[in-house]
């Protein structure tokens, strides 16, 4: 009898937890590995992947990447359809330069490309630790795509800079 009561309590708790706002909010967040960022410099620098993180091993050249974010939530209303929040994890190992990242919302009409950004975020200091750069939301419409653009500094003192992950919350 006792065990039945405990099972019932556990079941009620599990149902309540699955429908809680925290669980629902968590479902909207998407985390992408850094290896999903696309380096677009022609030729050099060649990126290095490690545990699905992406690094710039070049000692002279900066690596520029676009990290695509899936636009999946369409709320059927002008600019109510937006990306609420995004962030990116960056390892900045360069002692005198900083990595830069920016979140973009873009759409194209004819030959004109329209884009909107909340501004550039820059790493502070250097080291082998991960720094989190946080972005405010950006507006969107039904034709918008999103990405985080980054410039990653060259390798310095045997240490490479790179991107560990990035995430979005629609």
């Amino acid at each position: 009898m006792k065990s039945i009561n405990l099972s019932l309590l556990f079941a009620i708790f599990a149902i309540a937890a699955s429908g809680s706002p925290a669980a629902l909010a968590g479902a909207e967040k998407t985390i992408y590995p850094g290896s999903m960022c696309v380096p677009w410099n022609a030729g050099e620098p060649v990126p290095r992947l490690n545990a699905s993180r992406i690094f710039n091993d070049n000692t002279r050249r900066w690596m520029r990447v676009d990290c695509p974010i899936l636009h999946q939530d369409f709320k059927n209303g002008l600019f109510k359809d937006s990306l609420d929040d995004a962030d990116i994890g960056v390892i900045d190992a360069h002692s005198s330069s900083n990595a830069r990242c920016w979140l973009k919302s873009v759409h194209q009409t004819g030959s004109v490309l329209y884009s909107w950004s909340g501004g550039t975020r820059t790493t502070a200091g250097f080291g082998s630790h991960e720094q989190n750069l946080d972005f405010n939301g950006v507006p969107a419409n039904g034709n918008t795509w999103y990405y985080i653009g980054c410039t990653i500094p060259p390798r310095r003192h045997g240490q490479s800079s790179g991107i560990t992950y990035y995430s979005s919350d629609e």
């Binding site: 004109v112 329209y114 884009s115 909340g118 550039t120």
Partner: peptide
């Protein structure tokens, strides 16, 4: 965007058309 944010590192919001 690469020019304004990547090269220039503009900290504030931007709205652009090309």
């Amino acid at each position: 965007d690469g020019l304004v944010h990547g090269t220039m590192g503009w900290e504030g919001q931007t709205i652009a058309s090309v």
